[in-house]
Simulated assay, not measured.
Amino acid sequence: MQNKKIVITGGPGTGKSSIINYLESQGHYCLHEVSRQITIEAQKQGIEQLFLEQPLLFSEKLLEARINQHHEAVQLSKERIFLDRGIPDVVAYMDYFGTNYPDEFTLACNYHKYDKIFLLPPWKEIYTSDNERYESFDQALEIHEHLKKSYLTYGYEPIEVPTGSISSRSSFIMNSLDG
């Protein structure tokens, strides 16, 4: 059985992780965001913001982790696997920051495919920053546009998820998959 790999993406503070956690609580299989883990590991090694201090190294670690998640999703015998961000997110952020990157990044985007992409729009009412999320809301708006462009570039048609409660947004996603 070939499973469906479903990406939930969006700029910082759009509710991705909340939706992933909700879907998981409803019995769906979910793979969580890996960038915070990479940031925390770097902080343990004395690098406060790896993404700012060594953006290419951060992105290489992120690309490797997201490729590993894709491989994990392919191997799972679940009908649907939800992923908190996908491989094209890495390229979108690098484009946003103007970071040059080797061809392996675009090759990974072309080779590792997903079945559906749900894009969460910036939502000022729920946006907060913290120790791992340093972007302003205006920057989140720009990142959203880079994410949308990245997924379109790699042949996807992202479905924009309307704002609302976590359960209503999750229902929208499930209804879009079942429809």
Rank of each mutant, 00 (worst) to 15 (best):
T39L: 10
E145P: 12
T106K: 13
T163H: 15
Q37Y: 01
R169N: 01
K78W: 02
L23Q: 04
V7R: 05
D130G: 04
V90G: 02
S170C: 04
V7N: 14
F172K: 02
H32W: 01
K116C: 13
F97G: 05
L31C: 03
E24C: 01
I117P: 01
C109D: 15
G11H: 12
T9F: 06
E64I: 11
R133I: 02
L76E: 02
S170A: 11
L152V: 15
G155R: 10
D95V: 06
R66N: 13
S167V: 00
A108I: 08
V7A: 05
Y93D: 03
Q75M: 03
L107C: 15
H70K: 03
G10V: 10
T106W: 12
I81T: 03
S171A: 08
N3G: 07
Y111H: 12
Q2M: 11
M174R: 04
E145Y: 09
D103K: 12
Y114M: 12
M174V: 00
K16A: 08
P162F: 09
T128W: 04
Y101I: 04
E48T: 11
S168F: 06
A92R: 02
G155L: 15
K4P: 11
V7H: 14
T128K: 08
L52H: 02
E132D: 08
E160I: 06
G27P: 04
L62D: 14
G13N: 14
V90Y: 03
Y156A: 04
L76M: 00
K124H: 14
P55A: 15
E142H: 13
L50R: 07
H70D: 08
S77R: 10
E145G: 14
L63F: 10
A92G: 06
L52K: 08
W123R: 09
I117F: 09
K116H: 07
L141Y: 02
S35L: 02
Y156T: 10
L23G: 01
A65E: 13
I47S: 00
I117L: 11
E125L: 01
M1S: 13
I19W: 08
T106V: 14
I117Y: 07
L120Q: 08
L119Y: 05
E125K: 11
I8P: 10
Y127H: 10
Y154T: 11
D115Q: 11
P102G: 14
Y96P: 02
K116R: 15
Q69V: 04
G27K: 09
A65V: 10
V34T: 11
Y29H: 03
I87C: 00
P102F: 09
I126V: 15
I126F: 03
V7D: 05
I67W: 01
M94L: 03
P158G: 12
L63H: 09
L57I: 14
E53N: 13
P162T: 11
V91T: 10
N131F: 05
L119D: 12
F105W: 14
W123Q: 08
L120F: 05
E24M: 04
L120K: 02
A42S: 05
Q69N: 11
V90M: 03
G27M: 04
I143P: 03
Y114D: 14
Y134P: 10
L177E: 08
V91R: 00
